[in-house]
Write a protein that binds this DNA or RNA. Structure first.
Lengths: 208, 208
DNA sequence: TGACCTATGTGACAATTGTTACTGTATGCA
DNA sequence: TGCATACAGTAACAATTGTCACATAGGTCA
């Protein structure tokens, strides 16, 4: 575990890694599992060591809206923020792949801020990155119409999986953009005419 | 200054307040002044002692979108986040009233995290509050249509000024919601028919 | 008073998005 | 093989939002 930690979180000091090993537990999830629910009580900060998460905001009427991805080497800023007051989660997180997480108890999360410079910097960095990501999301919905939001969505998905072949149904996309399948089908067709994508059953090929 | 600081930031320890007095400078702005521009280099974290700010996200095509208000006793989370890497601002802030700010240099912002427990807690609290506010903003645009967004906007404005008489033109509102005046006029008329507001020239009376 | 400016009201129409309904087609499974 | 199911395409229409044009109303000031 020490080696993998060192690789995934290269900025962590040896002392911090030692502390993590001694105190934190590891939890695994299968692809598709819901890792955190809206309203759930949070006692742990989660570090991602393997796999990917998607973080959603849930609407009152059952809608869900994709905010961002979390990758190995990153942490859930919301879990940090809620943990700082043992609050309930304001978001929902789903495993994209099989996922492995390090669970750091709230008390240590705070203690380490004072004791480990590299932990402090990691936490501040996490806040910063998530805040910036959230600002980009606000942009995309405040200033852009659905066609551009769809392109933004596909690009992020492609960045996350590191490939140009997106295994997605139109319904998947519609759900995560909080719109309807027909709208997505229509816009994808237009993108195909503009030769930005090639459409197949259950997967979309990015050409750009 | 000591007394006013103690009143505005009641959680701060006496040592922290002493440190602020010795090291931070005060800056004043007039109502309507732009306090921070998108892209501006940030070296200071700003604490609000007097007046109110509005924080905007700016679009590429000149649009501006109101994210939240900042009140006395609060701090600009974006300035903290950017300051943590001496980055440029991702937002634009405008003074609503005459505003007075305490400017804390970047180096101290970090130093105090280790030295002053009450500063550490204030910073974490600030991240949390802003993150939550931002999530609410995402909600409002991801899940709600313009009529509900308008109501949300008017409510926030009313909360911020602490009154039911909003000195706003339709154009002001349209700009901050990134839509057009006609749309706002139309929706306000409907709200008037539903007896939620009473419309006057240059100001809107909330009835609810 | 009259010229002028800003704010608001409103009708007409366009564009986008949401909804309903129905079609066909690939896929897996009994 | 045939059936059930999930996925995709699309037409038709509704609702919302954006845009243009123009009218009117209130206020300022020379």
């Amino acid at each position: 575990m020490q080696d993998s930690l060192k690789k995934t979180f290269p900025t962590f000091s040896n002392e911090l890694i030692q502390d993590i090993q001694n105190n934190a537990s590891i939890q695994s999830f299968k692809a598709g599992d819901v890792i955190m629910r809206t309203g759930q009580y949070i006692n742990y900060t989660m570090l991602i060591t393997k796999g990917q998460l998607k973080v959603f905001r849930e609407g009152e009427n059952g809608g869900e809206f994709l905010m961002y991805y979390l990758q190995p080497g990153q942490a859930c800023a919301v879990s940090m923020i809620c943990a700082s007051k043992s609050q309930t989660s304001q978001i929902m997180a789903k495993a994209v792949d099989d996922v492995e997480l390090i669970m750091v108890p709230l008390s240590l999360m705070e203690k380490w801020m004072m004791e480990h410079r590299t932990w402090y910097e990691f936490v501040i960095f996490t806040y910063r990155i998530r805040f910036e990501e959230l600002l980009e999301v606000v942009d995309s919905i405040a200033f852009r119409a659905m066609d551009e939001r769809l392109e933004f969505y596909l690009k992020r998905h492609s960045d996350a999986c590191g490939c140009k072949d997106l295994k997605l149904s139109h319904q998947d996309i519609a759900t995560e953009l909080n719109t309807s399948r027909e709208v997505i089908s229509r816009l994808l067709k237009k993108m195909e005419q503009r030769e930005l994508v090639k459409l197949h059953r259950n997967h979309i090929e990015l050409l750009a």
